[in-house]
């Protein structure tokens, strides 16, 4: 698993883009969380792309929850981009994540944040 990059960072418009991939669970969620916080500390807006996530457990949810909480508090807009189906969407829906946080289209979400 060490060869796999769970998290990569990029810019998309004015927003910071965080791409997550592969399986996110108890084993790697804390580390991924630290990475994201390090890269998005001063972001104006954050996009988290979960479309390549093949598994998401409650530790991953915990991470996203904390992240959203922090950014909300700082007034930083955030969107979570998930596929129409798939593991990430299932878990987040089960955990009743707010609809306004979730997006299915990355470009549109970036536009929304930019506007």
């Amino acid at each position: 698993m060490t060869d796999q990059q769970w998290v990569t960072f990029a810019k998309m418009g004015s927003a910071d883009l965080v791409r997550l991939a592969g399986e996110i669970d108890l084993a790697n969620a804390p580390e991924i969380g630290r990475e994201i916080v390090r890269h998005t500390g001063r972001s104006g807006a954050v996009l988290i792309d979960l479309t390549a996530v093949s598994f998401l457990d409650s530790a991953g949810v915990r991470l996203l929850d904390a992240l959203v909480g922090d950014l909300d508090q700082a007034g930083t807009p955030i969107r979570l981009v998930v596929g129409e189906t798939g593991a990430a969407r299932m878990t987040l829906k089960l955990c009743a994540f707010r609809d306004d946080l979730l997006a299915t289209d990355l470009e549109r979400a970036a536009d929304e944040l930019g506007g």
Partner: peptide, 8 residues
């Protein structure tokens, strides 16, 4: 998901 959570 259920199995992962139970093991975790």
């Amino acid at each position: 998901l259920a199995c992962s959570e139970a093991v975790a």
